[in-house]
Amino acid sequence: MLYAILAYHVEAEVKSWTAEEDASVMVGLRGVHERLKGRLGPAARLGDTRNARTLRGPGQGMVVDGPFAETKEQLLGFYVIDCADEDAAIAAARDLRRVNPSAVYEIRPLKLYVPGAAFPETAGPSGA
């Protein structure tokens, strides 16, 4: 089953890291990525929230600056991972957190969307 693991963090804290501190976290995360090899799909670090735009409202909507979530942390990245079940997805998030302990990880089941196709049920783990 596919899961999204959303990585939240206080953006100002992450931006305050030195290049060496950031590189250290990334080295740790690459180690987790290697352990998840074959199950890890797209992963990304999102750009600065000050460059984000939100589309909301009726009709064509209105584009406004920034993500206006009422949280102390901001969504700064995400992973897509193929896991047997929720427990395995939580274990993967705990592995990520061991190397980035000040981050918050949200785990959500994910349905694969293929444009032009019906919304399928999420398939089981690869090879199952």
Rank of each mutant, 00 (worst) to 15 (best):
V80T: 10
V10A: 09
H9F: 07
A7D: 01
N51R: 05
G41C: 06
H9P: 02
V63S: 03
G38H: 06
G116H: 05
D87V: 12
H33C: 06
A4D: 05
A118T: 10
G28R: 03
G47L: 09
L96E: 04
P109S: 12
E11H: 13
R56W: 11
A92N: 05
A44M: 03
L29Y: 03
T54C: 11
C83G: 13
T18A: 02
R97Y: 07
D65R: 14
A92V: 11
Q74R: 14
R30N: 15
G124F: 11
G61S: 11
I90K: 10
L40S: 01
R56N: 08
M62T: 13
A93M: 01
A12I: 01
V104W: 08
A52C: 10
V32P: 08
E21N: 07
M62R: 07
A93Y: 04
P120R: 04
E70T: 11
R94N: 00
I5E: 11
A92I: 07
M1K: 13
A117E: 15
D87R: 11
V27P: 00
A84M: 05
A23Y: 03
A91Y: 00
E13T: 14
A19F: 02
P109V: 04
E73R: 13
L29T: 03
G61P: 12
D22E: 08
R39P: 01
D22I: 07
E121C: 02
E73V: 05
E86V: 11
A19T: 15
L46D: 05
G61A: 12
Y79T: 01
V25R: 07
Y3R: 06
R53A: 12
L110D: 04
G66Q: 06
S126I: 12
R53S: 07
V27N: 11
E70H: 10
C83T: 12
D85S: 11
Y79L: 14
E121Y: 02
L40R: 10
E13D: 15
A123W: 02
P101M: 06
P42G: 15
S24D: 13
G31I: 04
T122V: 10
V10F: 01
L46F: 12
L76E: 04
R35S: 15
T18D: 05
K37T: 04
N100C: 06
R98Y: 00
G127N: 10
L46T: 03
I90L: 09
E11P: 09
